[in-house]
Simulated scan of single mutants.
Amino acid sequence: MTPPQRRRRSPEPQPPPRPPQPNDGNDGKDGDASNPERLFILTGLADGGERAALDLVTLIVAGADPPPTAPPEQSALLRLCQAPLSVAEISAYLRLPFSVVTVLLTELLAAELVTARAPISREALPDRSLLEAVMHGLQKL
């Protein structure tokens, strides 16, 4: 029995790209996080306050349910962080830039609705050979 032969299809012609449509004043679509005005509204007015020192790998854990007065983005962030998540993961899940997520997290940290933990680095863990030596010493007792 011979295997079936595949035939290559000729590429279909692609339609030309559509020209940009005139703006009808609806700049801030609900799901459009790429709009700079929308991002400015999410982060609030510039109050001159400092942002929390957060890394991409800082772990965030929600300490409470979202209050009823919380904006939708903060509510989504609090629901998302019931289990520890890194700031990079939160940014990806919410489809928001890291800087916007940092501002949102700074507000939640100030309100003590979330806690930030530095990730555990391998240098902070004891050496495996040391742990094995302690274990063997305890077994000999």
Rank of each mutant, 00 (worst) to 15 (best):
A118G: 12
G137H: 07
L96D: 01
S99D: 14
E112Y: 10
L85C: 11
D27I: 06
A111E: 13
G44E: 13
F40I: 09
I41T: 12
P67Q: 14
P67D: 13
A133W: 01
Q82T: 15
Q82G: 15
A88D: 08
P20G: 02
Q14R: 08
A76P: 03
A118F: 04
M135E: 10
A111W: 09
L105N: 03
L42I: 15
L54R: 05
E37P: 05
L78Y: 04
P84L: 11
A118E: 11
K29R: 13
A76R: 10
V87L: 05
I120G: 03
S129N: 10
L96T: 05
I120S: 12
L138N: 04
E123K: 15
Q139S: 05
M1P: 06
S34I: 05
C81I: 07
S86W: 03
Q21K: 11
S91G: 12
A53M: 10
R128F: 11
V61I: 13
P13L: 03
P119Q: 08
I60V: 15
P72I: 12
A133N: 07
L56A: 13
G137E: 01
M135D: 05
A70W: 01
Q5F: 00
R128P: 00
T102E: 05
R95T: 08
A33L: 07
F98H: 04
L80M: 14
V134T: 07
E12I: 02
G28L: 12
E50L: 09
I60G: 03
V61R: 15
L108F: 02
G44F: 07
Y93L: 06
L54G: 05
F40T: 11
Q74N: 14
P36Y: 10
I60M: 13
A124E: 08
L39F: 03
